[in-house]
Design a protein around this nucleic acid. Structure first.
Length: 792
DNA sequence: GAGCACTGC
């Protein structure tokens, strides 16, 4: 009690309402091997429908000596695993599950943390469906690839089969499936890709959407799609697996589908709130962590912060303060670890190291300072205390200016509960929320906004079109996106010539939709082939699809910049990326050792390796589509020009013009003031650029930019560059001048052609006169060209 | 003169 009081005096007040977090959501159920904590009676089985499997029959099959799916004898190890599986909470409700499953086409299943739903439900379905007899498969989707792979491995183990045979998985770059496969774990995005080729998902007899409460973009589209597919395929069964929190919403959406809920297996977590609003959550967070260390019993601490910088900063400060506590207050040692996505894997692994030994009866402790990654993707056992300041970085999309950005935002109630639940994995825990209870109740939204409401949807709209959904306005989304977002997406696809004026897929759109790329990138890639620079664009597109390849460590920024200069192409960052990749693939790098080469050149090996992977996948697709993969001669003046022309064909909607007498730029069409990001290699002289992304941080930046000729904009996207629709201003005026000049050229060109025809048929004097004119014009043209060159 | 929350095809 003393502990509590002390805490409440400082920054935390005990709130006697202790929440039970057995309803926690969002984990991958990877830890079902623990002893069961909940025991129900096996229950009576009754009211069975004839011809259908009962739990009893299924269990008999499971405990027989022959594996019904392979025909082989079960191994000894199998029996051991089977025993443990039957201790899982979900096992108690097998019959109940089967009763509902057999009677309904769609059902919602709520399995709380540790119930074993991800591993067991698909197996229950297998014993009921016997899909191998019908030449069908059962699919179970996951939002993350690691989850899909590791769950598949474990279920294969449980079923006593080899991974990739009866049980397999399918994620990008890795498919472990065969013609024997009857249960397939896969990412939700992967199933969506399959649906694009096979609208009715004919190869499946049952589809299980797991972790549906996470509401990824892919899950949301799949749900809408599946709602239509079940109408066409009465034989297809659907199980939507979710957390309790929003189960009702799923039931309603799927036409009042029946619900089955299974208890979880976590410990209660006591929740504390601050008595008043905390102005400085960082300071408050650190004080709380130190406070816990000084006063609470053994158990590790998990602190949630928003991003890399904040985390590294907090880790440094906490480590210092902890040392002070050891010296001055006789506290036990405290080890602090950062955790965030871009941390290299071997460093992420460190969070699993054991906490330091206690000292003088005072507990030693480890503290993990993490982003949201510890909320869903990574589970750390041994955490007993969670400190939650209540913020996270979230993607937001502004359709008006077509910009996605990251904003520090208060978390949702569901998210806060999920965080708290992380304290109750191994024993009862405590969660310290650095905000008031009133704020929790009144200010936090119940659920985080699903991704579909926070994203640019051009890719999604193209996918839906490819899925055969023509009427997007009436498509039954669980949460319909803002009309303006949809309009923006349709508009963008129209200008990219992926949709025609009626909104139908064009030939280009059909092709582009097959690539796992943003439509602008995909169009750029396809168009590059017509300009003989497919292979180069393949590289650029791949390099743009991975996290930043340039590394710039705090202490040798200067050296990193100097080395980057080796790769710099004066025309811009896209071409610089091309140079980096060429360096990566060079004999020199190979002989030197590619990893070391990257390290010494301040390049992120993992990133470039990932780009190489993506490049291979895309290249195979392009070959399959018979696209031209020849290159221009490197010494030809067209080599770089054509690459830039192709860039313009994909990114004409992201063009920008330098402001006169200023280092700033203005974006084309919406006249946003922007600066070129300081990381850019672009020389300052270039007047027109296209940019890969608009980042909204301390300033409006455009990042990854390359110089282009404004004439190309009219050449490749005349519909978009209809100047009547432009806001008056600097950009419009410049474009008008360019357009006028182009029109004059076009006229002259036309005339020249007519004259040429005339020359062939008219008296010589007339021809002479025309020739004169032509010479004059040619001179002017040359002069203009020269001017342009000088400008560049 | 600055930053990448987290996923996914």
């Amino acid at each position: 009690m003393a502990t509590k009081r002390r805490l409440s005096n400082e920054s935390i007040e005990s709130n006697s309402s202790s929440e039970s977090f057995s309803s926690m959501t969002g984990k991958t159920d990877l830890e079902v091997n623990e002893e069961a904590l909940v025991h129900h009676d096996a229950g009576e089985f009754h009211g069975l429908i004839e011809h259908q499997t009962t739990a009893e029959q299924a269990e008999k099959l499971e405990s027989g000596s022959i594996n019904p799916f392979t025909g082989n004898a079960f191994s000894d190890r199998y029996v051991g695993i089977l025993k443990k599986r039957r201790d899982l909470p979900v096992h108690q409700q097998r019959q109940e599950f089967l009763d509902i499953y057999q009677k309904h086409q769609i059902m919602v299943f709520v399995g709380e943390t540790g119930s074993g739903k991800t591993t067991q439900i698909p197996q229950f379905v297998l014993f009921d469906e016997m899909p191998h007899l019908k030449n069908k498969q059962v699919a179970c989707t996951q939002p993350r690839r690691v989850a899909a792979m590791s769950v598949a491995e474990r279920v294969a183990n449980e079923m006593d089969v080899k991974i990739g045979e009866e049980v397999g998985y399918s994620v990008r770059f890795e498919h472990k499936v065969s013609n024997k496969t009857i249960l397939k774990y896969m990412t939700d995005g992967m199933l969506l890709r399959e649906a694009m080729e096979d609208h009715d998902l004919t190869r499946y007899s049952c589809i299980i959407l797991d972790e549906a409460h996470e509401r990824t973009l892919a899950t949301d589209i799949l749900m809408g799609l599946i709602k239509q597919v079940v109408e066409r395929r009465p034989d297809l069964k659907i199980i939507v697996m979710s957390a309790t929190l929003d189960a009702e919403k799923f039931q309603t959406y799927f036409n009042e589908a029946p619900l089955l809920a299974v208890p979880g297996r976590t410990f209660p977590v006591e929740v504390y709130y601050t008595p008043e609003y905390q102005k400085d959550y960082l300071d408050s967070a650190m004080r709380t962590v130190l406070q816990i260390h000084a006063t609470e019993d053994e158990g590790d601490i998990l602190l949630f912060l928003t991003g890399e910088d904040e985390i590294e900063d907090a880790v440094a400060k906490l480590s210092l303060e902890a040392d002070k506590l050891v010296r001055e207050e006789n506290c036990g040692p405290m080890k602090v670890y950062p955790l965030y996505g871009s941390l290299p894997p071997h460093q992420q692994q460190k969070i699993f190291e054991k906490a330091p030994e206690g000292y003088n009866g005072r507990p030693g402790r480890k503290v993990i300072v993490s982003t949201n990654i510890a909320e869903t993707s990574l589970t750390i056992d041994g955490v007993v205390y969670v400190v939650d300041p209540g913020f996270s970085k979230q993607k937001v999309y502004n359709p008006r200016i077509r910009v996605e950005s990251l904003l520090v935002t208060p978390v949702s109630k569901a998210s806060a509960q999920q965080r708290a639940g992380r304290a109750g994995r191994t024993r009862p825990g405590k969660c310290f929320r650095l905000y008031t209870e009133e704020a929790f109740q009144k200010e936090l939204i119940p659920q985080s906004y699903p991704e579909i409401l926070r994203s640019n949807l051009s890719s999604t709209v193209l996918e839906l079109k490819k899925l055969g959904i023509d009427d997007l306005v009436h498509f039954d989304f669980m949460d319909p996106p803002a009309p303006e977002t949809m309009m923006r997406a349709l508009e963008e696809l129209y200008y990219l010539k992926c949709l025609d004026a009626e909104g139908n897929l064009t030939e280009l759109g059909r092709l582009v939709s097959l690539y796992p790329l943003d439509p602008m990138l995909a169009v750029m890639l396809v168009k590059a082939c017509d300009l003989n620079c497919g292979p180069e664009m393949l590289t650029i597109v791949s390099m743009l699809s991975v996290p930043n390849v340039f590394v710039r460590p705090g202490k040798d920024k200067k050296r990193a910049d100097d080395i980057k200069a080796i790769f710099t192409h004066p025309d811009g960052d896209h071409l610089t990326l091309l140079n980096v990749y060429h360096g990566f693939k060079s004999d020199e790098a190979y002989e030197y050792g590619v990893k070391k080469w990257c390290f010494d050149h301040y390049l992120n090996y993992r990133s470039i390796q990932a780009a190489d992977n993506i490049r291979n996948q895309l290249e195979r697709m392009m070959e399959r589509h018979n696209l031209n993969l020849e290159s221009n001669d490197y010494d030809s003046p067209r080599y770089f020009e054509n690459i830039k022309r192709a860039l313009a064909q994909g990114f004409f909607m992201q063009a920008s013009k330098k402001k006169s007498n200023s280092k700033g730029f203005l974006t084309v069409k919406d006249n946003q003031q922007v600066l070129i990001h300081p990381s850019s290699v672009l020389s300052k002289e270039i007047e027109w650029v296209i940019y890969n992304e608009f980042v909204l941080t301390t300033q409006n930046y455009i990042r990854t930019v390359t110089g282009i000729k404004p004439e190309w904009l009219f050449e490749y996207a005349p519909a978009y560059f209809n100047l009547d629709q432009f806001m008056p201003g600097d950009v419009k005026m410049s474009l008008e001048r360019i357009k006028e000049r182009l029109d004059v050229y076009a006229k002259l060109d036309k005339k020249r052609k007519e004259e040429k025809a005339l020359i062939e048929n008219t008296p010589e004097d007339l021809a002479e006169e025309k020739k004169d004119k032509k010479e004059k014009k040619d001179k002017k043209e040359k002069k203009d060209k020269k001017n342009k060159k000088v400008k560049k």
